[in-house]
């Protein structure tokens, strides 16, 4: 069931079209990713959903509420984590949660949030003395303290170290498992691939594709590659005869077999029949990065 519906959303800044006819729906209980390079219109799109920006045209509905008309009601059920928003340096972790809690009708238990976000030892630490990762976790806690049905998280792991990123991902999955629908704005492929049930790829204010991460990669190419070092010599024809195999290349001692379908199993069984052991066997698939480049014609890093 769709909990968020965005239809033909348009938002200009002067002559620049930040959102140029964006449409998608988000189902209840899913983690929906919005992926795109910087300046693609991701943040503009979610800000129109949050009611922080007024759209030029199109319609947006979140749980049946219009973010502009029903702004106050919507903010009771929407948890928002903003890019680059800070708190007063002298405000302590516990006080921040206590304050933001008072803004909502049915707030969450701040103690449990503090614990589950690993801020238990930091209750009395002022915001200005927290590390980047701790500030980010507090910002997630503030987005969740209103007990939201939908949470919008914008670039939530930017600036975190690898361990903190993985911890944050685990946390987001826990939040989803507790029944919260999540919109995740990101420009990290690994994050999108790991967390998102579905993804909208945005480029230059337009939706390029909406699909599951594996659906997106499958769209680009179904080709796989198997690499290995054979224990004995064999003729390429041995593999080329297989219907799954499209090409065999040799790279020194290494053999690279390209093809589709159940490539790995087909190759492995032929090798086994011929008593050839495949050492350093690896299967390579098209990554989300490759898919993104194919869909938008550019790398996400630029």
């Amino acid at each position: 069931m769709a909990i968020i519906e965005v239809k033909d959303l348009v938002k200009h800044y002067g002559s620049q079209r930040a959102a140029d006819g964006i449409s998608f729906t988000v189902d209840e209980g899913e983690i929906f990713g919005i992926l795109g390079p910087n300046g693609a219109g991701k943040t503009t799109t979610v800000e129109c959903i949050e009611g922080l920006r007024t759209r030029d045209s199109g319609s947006v509905s979140v749980m049946g509420l219009d973010p502009e008309r029903d702004a106050k009601e919507l903010k009771q059920v929407l948890g928002i984590q903003l890019q680059e928003s800070r708190l007063p340096d002298r405000l302590r972790v516990g006080e921040a949660l206590d304050l933001y809690r008072s803004f909502y009708r049915n707030p969450a238990d701040p103690e449990r949030l503090i614990e589950s976000l690993g801020l238990g030892g930091k209750r009395k630490t002022p915001f200005g003395k927290l590390s980047g990762g701790q500030q980010q976790r507090l910002s997630i806690a503030l987005a969740l303290v209103g007990n939201p049905r939908v949470a919008v998280l914008d670039e939530l792991t930017t600036g975190l170290d690898p361990q903190a990123r993985r911890d944050t991902w685990d946390l987001i999955e826990q939040v989803r498992d507790s029944g919260v629908t999540i919109i995740l704005v990101t420009h990290f492929m690994d994050e999108a691939e790991r967390l998102c049930d579905r993804l909208a790829v945005i480029d230059s204010g337009k939706i390029v594709a909406v699909d599951t991460p594996s659906g997106l990669t499958a769209r680009v190419s179904a080709e796989q590659r198997v690499r290995f070092r054979p224990s004995a010599e064999f003729a390429d024809a041995l593999l080329l005869d297989l219907p799954e195999v499209s090409a065999v290349e040799r790279n020194g001692a290494q053999v690279v077999v390209s093809g589709g379908g159940n490539l790995l199993q087909a190759v492995a069984s032929v090798l086994a029949r011929n008593h050839i052991v495949a050492a350093d066997l690896r299967v390579e698939q098209v990554s989300l990065d490759d898919a993104f480049v194919a869909l938008t014609g550019k790398s996400i890093e630029n």
Partner: peptide, 14 residues
């Protein structure tokens, strides 16, 4: 408060 996005952050609450 405006410069640090604190006012903006509050706009995201009820």
């Amino acid at each position: 408060y405006r410069e640090r996005g604190i006012l903006r952050r509050m706009r995201a609450t009820p």
